[in-house]
Design a protein around this nucleic acid. Structure first.
Lengths: 134, 134
DNA sequence: CGGTATCCTCCTAGATACTG
DNA sequence: CAGTATCTAGGAGGATACCG
């Protein structure tokens, strides 16, 4: 196992994708790019959003999540949960016993994604109409 | 060349990643997942956002974009511009002459991403603090 | 029950060279 | 100037089997 896996939070590097020219507009753009990239990063991948939505109604166990997301593999679910935990969006609680139970729940920080998701939803609906898919 | 490339708008399939159980909560979740996925989809990749931000101040030509995004390759820029155009976020205007000029500009639909981007930025800034990267 | 370990496949992104 | 053609590498995601 590698020592520092992908579970480190946020985006890996602040790569300068826009030239740092000395115009105010460009400066503003630069201040937008990084935070937005960070936000998009934590939602990246096929399963982040489905998992977060599945946890929205309340705490769920590993097995309950696999039922809620019938096509995810155990490996993927495990991997994604680790990343979400590393980004402080969910908590993982082990309940000792035989067999052991593990509960996953949204953190306040995870819940705070609500506004972002609503805004994405609103735009996504407009986009569907615009593009003509129903 | 394949006949139907990736330039088709929105996400390829509505894959049921959440079980359609008969609870109201799940129904609401299903209505959130698809539009949000669509919205995230059009911003996906390393260059979508930088290109959109580079076009925010106004129309730019291909060469101007390569200068604004110094590390992008021509191939990548060309590919991403096609996808953005297919998603109706930008327009492509050919100005005949020798040599030919091509101008790219945001559409109203592209500009309408503003609210989404601001919301992502706000959350991204909070996320950086939360995660402890300054 | 709640995962790991291995192996594999495809897709994205990039490098390089060339063109109307 | 504004791209296209071709090739390649790396990583995300997936299948399957096994484990404390």
């Amino acid at each position: 196992m590698s020592t520092i896996p992908k579970y480190s939070p946020v985006v890996e590097d602040s790569n300068p994708q826009l030239t740092p020219v000395a115009s105010e507009a460009a400066a503003v753009l630069g201040e937008i790019l990084q935070p937005v990239t960070d936000a998009l990063y934590v939602l990246q991948g096929k399963w982040k959003l489905p998992i977060l939505l599945a946890l929205a109604p309340g705490t769920k166990r590993f097995g309950e999540l696999t039922k809620a997301l019938p096509t995810i593999t155990d490996r993927m679910l495990s991997k994604e949960l680790k990343e979400l935990e590393a980004n402080l969006l969910i908590t993982r609680s082990v309940i000792e016993g035989v067999p052991v139970k593990v509960e996953y729940a949204l953190t306040d920080h995870g819940i705070s994604l609500h506004d972002v998701i609503i805004e994405l939803q609103k735009w996504g609906l407009r986009h569907r109409k615009k593009v003509g898919l129903q």
